[in-house]
């Protein structure tokens, strides 16, 4: 009986420990987000924040260095951002409904 009581009393502790381990594992999983995933999420977020513009992103510092439309000096901003060989990504929100067919091919 004593053993049973001890076992029952121990359950919450074991449960708490297991929960703690799971939380720790979850945190570790979150902390292990790859550099590529961080870059991808930043590109997505920046693009969403500027839905009507092209967004020029410095992929090294994860910063938006310029936004604008084609023909508004965007190309010179991109060249400036690329100075020193920095890796720059230009992103624009694509239209899900029309991409890869009519919109993509200018129809």
């Amino acid at each position: 009986m004593k053993v049973l009581i001890c076992r029952l009393a121990g359950l919450p502790l074991v449960s708490a420990m297991a929960g703690s381990l799971l939380i720790t594992a979850g945190m570790r999983k979150k902390a292990r987000m790859s550099g590529y995933d961080k870059l991808m999420l930043f590109v997505e977020k920046s693009t969403e924040e500027h839905p009507r513009s092209k967004v020029v992103i410095d992929a090294g510092s994860l910063t938006v260095v310029a936004t604008g439309k084609e023909g508004e000096g965007l190309e010179s901003k991109i060249r400036e951002a690329k100075s020193g060989g920095r890796f720059v990504i230009v992103s624009q929100k694509s239209d899900d409904a029309l991409s890869c067919n009519m919109h993509t091919f200018g129809l």
């Binding site: 790859s34 550099g35 590529y36 870059l39 992929a59 090294g60 510092s61 020193g84 060989g85 890796f87």
Partner: peptide, 12 residues
């Protein structure tokens, strides 16, 4: 590279 796509000097 998946873990570090861009180096500290800003190059891919």
């Amino acid at each position: 590279d998946e873990s570090e796509p861009v180096a500290e000097d800003g190059k891919a």
